[in-house]
Design a protein around this nucleic acid. Structure first.
Lengths: 216, 216
DNA sequence: CTCGTAAGCTAGTGGTGGTTAGGTAAGGTA
DNA sequence: TACCTTACCTAACCACCACTAGCTTACGAG
């Protein structure tokens, strides 16, 4: 009974370094997402990769290093995604749904990704920096949607920087929450998620744009 | 140098059991919020309470038990808060700002509370249950705001249960994110937070109520 | 078939962290 | 002042976990 393969991976197969690395990254993504950084054990990551712990260290310098690379990878993918789908000069009515559809596709294909950015608990400054960076980028992306529309800055009292940042943060956290809710309710079709997201965001956009805010 | 009192608490003072317990709970709240469940060590909680680890065990059966009690306590306080400020028969225009002002007061007085509910990482089923319960209650509270208004269910396609739940989840997560953002930017006055929250929520309320949703 | 490379293993090590046993002394009470 | 309760400590245990040294064996090249 030396080979048990407790979970995901096939029962011990010799892979190329690159392939094994990919398997480990996928497994680690899940474990970190489920248990958090400290709660995740290298042992479990290894088991779910169909491998023993030392193999993990053939590919990553340390647990922290593995975590860091996953964050960076996810950050890059998200950034690329926003860059790709937020561009263009169409009006917001088309651009926003398109961007959020792309976002939904991403979280559908990477169900564990959003959880990794939900709460920072390592205490490691380098990792805190990545977290802060990702969140800031998301806020910028969303802030662009909310604020860069023509007319925004002309409206009285509607859009100082800080207000924009707060609104974007509400959206960012809201979307992340929705993504996590979604992977607990996988039956919900993507269009419904997109619709919810569009409504939430859209709305904020219209409000901030028109300066139609409370208190009246 | 036996007494170092590395942080918060006064340098070793003999307290009544009740008082010490309170000190420990406050310290633990911070540490859990900062580091997450697994990242928090009993040792650090004890130090920040001006005491050694065994004393923690005079008051709580285990680290998990301590965590559980903090969650329950916070849950009860939040529930009480919603119950108190969401009642009444005034129109939404008054009730919502009032409820969110109360919410802002709570997170201002308990800056570490929101972080405890942001991400579950213990894996303990009992704790998962508390988390789920708190989030469900928050969704119910917010869902009540969004949905229970007269007219809501009469509008075509606007408010099936699931859509309501999703919208409420976006709001819930958004508010939680805002709360955390706030305690990283403590200078921002409460009125601004409340205003942001009201706008985010309010808006959702209006939209769902009018069935004025995307896709058009 | 042979052989070298490299993927993966077994078996440990050091350290940390939750937890407990048993003793010390502070402070109210008689 | 003597005493008893109890808040708090010191010292240790043990399980778990990140990480490493060194061996084994699968596989592709010749």
């Amino acid at each position: 009974m030396s080979t048990q393969s407790t979970a995901d991976a096939p029962p011990r197969k010799r892979l190329t370094a690159e392939a094994r690395r990919e398997v480990i990254e996928q497994a680690a993504l899940k474990v970190f997402a489920e248990r958090g950084y400290h709660g995740a054990s290298v042992d479990e990551i290894a088991r779910r990769s169909g491998v023993t712990p030392p193999v993990v260290y053939d590919h990553f310098a340390s647990k922290l290093d593995l975590h860091k690379r996953l964050l960076q990878r996810t950050r890059d993918e998200l950034l690329e995604m926003w860059r790709e789908h937020l561009a263009g000069e169409e009006p917001a009515e088309e651009r926003i749904p398109r961007a959020l559809d792309a976002w939904a596709s991403y979280v559908q294909e990477h169900p564990y990704a959003p959880r990794m950015f939900f709460h920072e608990t390592t205490g490691d400054p380098e990792i805190q920096a990545i977290h802060a960076e990702v969140q800031a980028q998301a806020r910028v992306a969303l802030g662009a949607i909310l604020g860069r529309e023509p007319g925004a800055e002309k409206v009285a009292g509607s859009a100082d920087e800080e207000a924009l940042e707060m609104a974007a943060e509400v959206m960012r956290a809201g979307l992340t929450g929705l993504a996590i809710w979604w992977n607990e309710h996988p039956d919900v079709p993507r269009e419904r998620i997109v619709a919810t997201a569009v409504n939430a965001l859209w709305i904020g956009f219209e409000r901030v744009r028109h300066g139609d805010t409370w208190p009246t």
